[in-house]
């Protein structure tokens, strides 16, 4: 069976709730392998208790987003940086 992921554009709505800009146009660098690219090119596993965005190069976790009823948890320890075009 194929793995259940979609591309990083799936992060646009959930992240717009937290950030004022569309973060999927930003560039992230993977803390594991160093590959950099648009957030929209991450592999997002969304058949899960949260959104798990993985590096298309090494499959390590770059970003995790959990949305509870009254708060969101954003874990970016897998990203070196997020470069946001302004």
């Amino acid at each position: 069976m194929t793995d259940l992921y979609t591309d990083g554009n799936a992060l646009a709505g959930p992240l717009r709730e937290i950030f004022a800009v569309d973060v999927t146009a930003a560039t992230s660098q993977c803390a594991s392998c160093g590959q950099a690219g648009p957030v929209a090119t991450l592999r997002v596993y969304d058949h899960a208790p949260g959104l798990v965005a993985r590096c298309p190069g090494c499959e390590e976790v770059v970003l995790r987003l959990v949305r509870g009823p009254s708060a969101a948890w954003l874990d970016m320890r897998g990203a070196v940086f997020l470069r946001v075009p302004l």
């Binding site: 069976m1 793995d3 259940l4 992921y5 596993y45 058949h47 949260g50 976790v61």
Partner: peptide, 9 residues
């Protein structure tokens, strides 16, 4: 039996 996964199988 839904399949949930946080990454590749």
């Amino acid at each position: 039996f839904p399949v949930l996964s946080a990454g590749p199988t």
